[in-house]
Design a protein around this nucleic acid. Sequence first.
DNA 1: TCAAGGCGCTAATACGAATTATCACGCCGA
DNA 2: TCGGCGTGATAATTCGTATTAGCGCCTTGA
Lengths: 328, 328
Amino acid sequence: MTGVSQATVSLVLNGRDDGSVRIAPETRERVLGAIRATGYVADPVARRLAARHNRIIGVFTYEPVFPAGTGDFYHPFLVGIEESAERLGCDLLLLTSAPVTDGRRRIFHDDNRLRLADGCVLLGRSLDRDELGRLVAEGQPFVSVGRRDDAGGPVPYVGADYAAATADVVRRALDAGHTRLAYLGQGAGPESHTDRFAGYRTALDAAGLPTRHEPTDRSPADLLDTLLDTGVTAVVVEEYADGVSLANAAVERGRTVPADLSILALGDPTRPTTSDLEFTGFRIPRREMGWQAVEVLTGLLAGVPGTVTQRLLPCQPVDGVTLLPPRH
Amino acid sequence: MTGVSQATVSLVLNGRDDGSVRIAPETRERVLGAIRATGYVADPVARRLAARHNRIIGVFTYEPVFPAGTGDFYHPFLVGIEESAERLGCDLLLLTSAPVTDGRRRIFHDDNRLRLADGCVLLGRSLDRDELGRLVAEGQPFVSVGRRDDAGGPVPYVGADYAAATADVVRRALDAGHTRLAYLGQGAGPESHTDRFAGYRTALDAAGLPTRHEPTDRSPADLLDTLLDTGVTAVVVEEYADGVSLANAAVERGRTVPADLSILALGDPTRPTTSDLEFTGFRIPRREMGWQAVEVLTGLLAGVPGTVTQRLLPCQPVDGVTLLPPRH
DNA sequence: TCAAGGCGCTAATACGAATTATCACGCCGA
DNA sequence: TCGGCGTGATAATTCGTATTAGCGCCTTGA
């Protein structure tokens, strides 16, 4: 249309008029006119092939992105991710094509499409260690939402400081006069669990008090009986839903929360559950985590020098109504 | 590593051993071995450049994808879209980079990235007519979630049959004995509104009864007075939230719903609102709409002949507690 | 004996942009 | 007249893959 070469169009399109390249203003206008007239837009894929980046951020989750069963636990993360992406002018690629084997999605498989994006954000309770290691080894740019242990190298993450938040919750119970506190949950497995348990242990150790770990495989009623029989006056629960079950069991047994037993929740519900009690504990800064994860990723990609790639964000304390001094 | 050409690797990688191409089993094994050893995966971008499609489905919404203010009205659509995409092995690209001008996102702008995807799904109460027309004119493959009028050509869509569902609701009120039914809402603007109003009008016309249209700009209390003063016994409300306001106003005035006034909701809440009443009306098959939108899109892309590209899905009637025969 | 065709693979090219070395041109000064 | 220099644009190459015509060799059948 304009009689210029493809190269010239490319230069005009990208507004290149720095020292090394010059386009006559008249030519530039002609090209821009043709672009406007035809509505031409450069093929982003070809562009990516040549430029080696495309402002696409992959989002990989081990559960469906738009959750049904997780009671929207992941929703706030995604809100933060989207807001951040929008601000940075990036698009999000939801890696929904990853096939599900053995009940979970896999990053690496025969038609790995991760590299469609410049980098990716990983979301999920527990990431597969092998896959994580491979990402690190291959130098794939990624950021995990949630702290992760090293996997053959440092893993970039934006996590919540569960250890500090849990220790704080425990200290609040200690300040209220409790001396026999149990930890209800796995306390192992995913980093989010071990961190909580570590915080619990730290706070009790510092106070010179014994720890007590209850697994979650017992019925709430049994569990309640055991706890009360052995003089436990406060329980910190890893999973919000387990706290709800325990409280319900207490009500059924004619006991009162928190008069008979204080219950402290270590975070937001990850399973759909309802309760009219507002549990004392803390909130996970989910939106902020999602937001910062994208920030860290783009920092990594741009090679920004000062970027801290391992971040722990503070949790917000929640006062709630489930903590009272113990009876004597 | 194996001494074969790039072309051979490509052929092995894609499992091409149909009639036209043959690879010696021994060679194939050697190549596969090298692939396993190195963990090589084809660059999806280059692949897309060559193949001219990439199994990416764009998702464009006129509101944030992960909604905050819309009370998760859009969530079920996205769940359906994701499920369908997962089943078809496609990834979803959320077009979050589209800049917001004059309070809404725009598809077309100077750095249009729609073409990154093979096609796209459009979501939103009202789509911009000009943009829609341009999509049609340019032959961009897309599907709208929600019925749309022609825009210089037929618009592919998967919508809810609001007209039929509304007519059905009105008939249920007529069957209960109502003869003075008002329509509360815009009744104009987006197709979803005009369709509802059309259904309302159709049902009343068929019964030989007069229609009555109330705009939403009045206070619920005023509105309630007017309705009752003029003998209206049932109201169909376009917006769930307006029904809630009206019901609340009734309670404040010492009236009872549905004894004094039946209220029928034409769909699910699009704004966050709470009410202990379960409104009589219908539910929008949101998940199914999202699901089928992706189906239609992939059908379009694959050029599947029999694909119906304009679909209206039935809404599910809800019995609820807000419809009773009128007092005499 | 020779054309026809099967076999397994590769060279070459396309995909659509970004990048860079280079070229043609005109002007100026020596 | 010739060389040097600033201008403005282009030819050629690159990114990593998919596709296809065709090569050289061998077998088969008439």
